[in-house]
């Protein structure tokens, strides 16, 4: 326990970075996924195919590779980002693609008659998307969003590849310093504990959205 308390300040520093990445990616990627999904499902073929290609790249390559591309690869063509910028961009690009696919699934699972009812009532495509399909799709997609948010929490440890000090990196430093594997166990437990409020919080939203069937 003493050893854990000794490491706790550095773990808290790591935890701040981990939670910062988790929250920023979750919120911004979710917001970005709305227009991406809209375009993916739109009749504008160029936009729809561009989005499909983007999603294909993001889902088809490892996030670790994407992080390295943004930080180490882009400077070759004259685009340079700080570690933080590169990490955030890679996470946003990657998770926006995943969230957009979740939303697309949610929208496509809605009875096509809902869209037709909107057409008959004279609603525009944007109005139909925002006020008729999206609220229903969100309800359908919440279990997948919970899964993806928990994956995101664990994925944040990948930013260590850019030398950023997140939770797992602090554990690695401590393990090397004290020549023991215990810090990894502590960090594992911390991740497990973090999962609980996140899953509970999102389940609460799921229940709130369950006001209709």
């Amino acid at each position: 326990m003493d050893f854990f308390l000794q490491l706790l300040p550095s773990f808290i520093e790591g935890l701040k970075v981990t939670l910062f990445f988790w929250a920023v990616t979750l919120v911004i990627s979710f917001l970005l996924s709305l227009p991406v999904t809209y375009l993916r499902l739109s009749k504008f073929r160029i936009a729809a195919y561009t989005i499909r290609f983007y999603i294909y790249i993001m889902r088809g390559t490892p996030l670790l590779l994407q992080l390295m591309f943004f930080y180490f690869g882009l400077p070759y063509i004259g685009i340079t980002f700080s570690r933080l910028q590169a990490a955030i961009l890679a996470f946003l690009f990657n998770y926006t693609a995943y969230f957009a696919e979740i939303l697309r699934g949610g929208i496509q699972s809605i009875d096509s008659g809902q869209k037709e009812a909107s057409t008959v009532l004279g609603y525009s495509n944007t109005h139909t998307f925002l006020y008729i399909l999206l609220p229903q799709a969100l309800k359908n997609s919440i279990p997948s969003f919970i899964n993806e948010s928990l994956t995101l929490l664990k994925d944040t440890c990948l930013i260590a590849i850019l030398g950023m000090d997140e939770l797992l990196r602090y554990a690695k430093i401590a393990a090397n310093t004290y020549a023991t594997g215990l810090p990894f166990i502590y960090v594992g437990i911390l991740y497990l504990i973090l999962n609980v409020p996140i899953a509970k919080g999102l389940s609460f939203i799921e229940k709130k959205l369950n006001y209709y069937k």
Binding site: Q114, E116, A117, V120, L121, G122, P135, Q136, K213
Partner: peptide, 26 residues
């Protein structure tokens, strides 16, 4: 479109809206 109303076979009310909202939104 506004001159034609359609009552669908399976009604297609919007499930996330109350009956009143279903009516007044359009």
């Amino acid at each position: 479109q506004k001159s034609i109303g359609l009552v669908f076979q399976n009604y297609q009310l919007f499930p996330h809206r109350t009956i009143l909202r279903n009516l007044i939104d359009a």
